[in-house]
Amino acid sequence: MKNHRVLTLYYHRVNILESDFNQLCVSPTKFRQQMLYLKHNYRIVRFEDDWSMLDSNAVAITFDDGYLDNLEYALPVLEELEVPATIFVSTGTMGQDMELWWDELEALLLEGNEFPLYFELFDDQFSCRWDTSTLEYRKNCYMGIHHLMKSYISFEKRENWLMQLWKWRGLKRTVRKHYLTLSSRDCKELARSRMITVGAHTISHPSLAGLSRESQEFEIKASIDTIAQIVDQKITVFSYPFGNPEADFDQDTEKICRKYGIRKAASTENALWSASTDLYRIPRKVVRDWGPVEFEQKIRDYWNEQAGTG
């Protein structure tokens, strides 16, 4: 058995924001520097390729969520440098009438100057009251609500909570330009590039393991079907939202992916792919807004980390 490995990197956004609480953005300049370094130093492969046929170590590039800036800022760099990448798109915000829920939550709790002294959430199961008088307290509130929204409530309940927060702030629900995700037209344009593979990433970006089998199946199948219809091709790759094995996806999730034609699925397990890796648990390592020197060191560290590379 061959002992080569693949380092799969995952990005979210290529943009510059005033506030980036979740550290999702890499600036366009740094992204180009990072791609140049990888192109000059490593073999870059497509996520969907059969890596068992490789005869050397390699790197794969992926993006999660489907932000509009993937098209605006990442694609030109990828095409210029001829670097292939896979973009996993969450379909629920394609109408561009809402933001991804963690961005909306961040805007409601962490942006602006005038806040009520406390926020009281009304819910039949998770009612709670948070002190929101300072930024630090609001960060605590953000983390608490994020945790519940991610793993314990339905899309419908999440929407109800967000509307409670908009009312609490006394603001009209809006979508910020710099937080737009891909529309169906944008997604089609991405798919036309020979550098891009489009994959599915659920509808509403939940932690799948917290859902019933029926709800998991709906989130996965509907997102695959939507993307397939838009790009007019079969979708064979998928990325689990949040991506931690067992915590965010389980054996049921993997079986559902197989059922609907997925041949390879990406996790966020912090490891490298090797010939013995489960194709439905491809590990990936995150990339942040690192300059050239720090990025080079991080990549070297990623290759040298031995834990969990099987």
Rank of each mutant, 00 (worst) to 15 (best):
R158N: 11
E254S: 09
C25V: 04
P241S: 11
Y42A: 07
V89I: 11
Y137H: 10
S154V: 08
G66F: 01
E136W: 04
S184L: 09
W101G: 12
L208T: 01
K167T: 13
D123Q: 03
R43L: 13
G310P: 01
M98H: 15
M163D: 15
T174F: 11
E18G: 15
L38A: 12
K139S: 06
K139E: 14
L100D: 11
K39L: 12
D232G: 03
K234Q: 12
D186M: 05
K172Y: 08
A265G: 05
N22M: 13
H147W: 09
K264N: 10
Y11N: 09
R194C: 06
L105E: 14
W166N: 13
I235M: 04
V287P: 01
E305H: 13
K234H: 05
E114C: 06
S19W: 03
V83W: 00
L81S: 10
V287C: 15
F249S: 02
L279K: 13
T132Y: 14
S183N: 07
Y10R: 02
E189T: 10
R176E: 13
G210K: 00
K285W: 07
D124S: 14
W168N: 12
K2W: 07
A191D: 06
A247D: 12
Y73R: 07
Y240R: 03
M143Q: 15
S276C: 07
Y260T: 07
N270S: 10
L171M: 15
T236F: 01
S127G: 15
T8Q: 06
F155Q: 07
D131Y: 09
A275N: 13
Y260Q: 08
T174R: 14
V231C: 05
S27R: 12
E296C: 06
F249R: 04
R43H: 13
A275Y: 09
R138P: 06
D20A: 13
N113H: 06
R173D: 10
G243D: 06
C128I: 11
S19F: 08
W130T: 10
R13A: 11
L24P: 07
L36Y: 08
G308C: 03
V198P: 03
S212E: 10
H40M: 10
I235F: 02
A222M: 11
E217W: 04
E269D: 10
K2R: 15
E136I: 10
E254G: 05
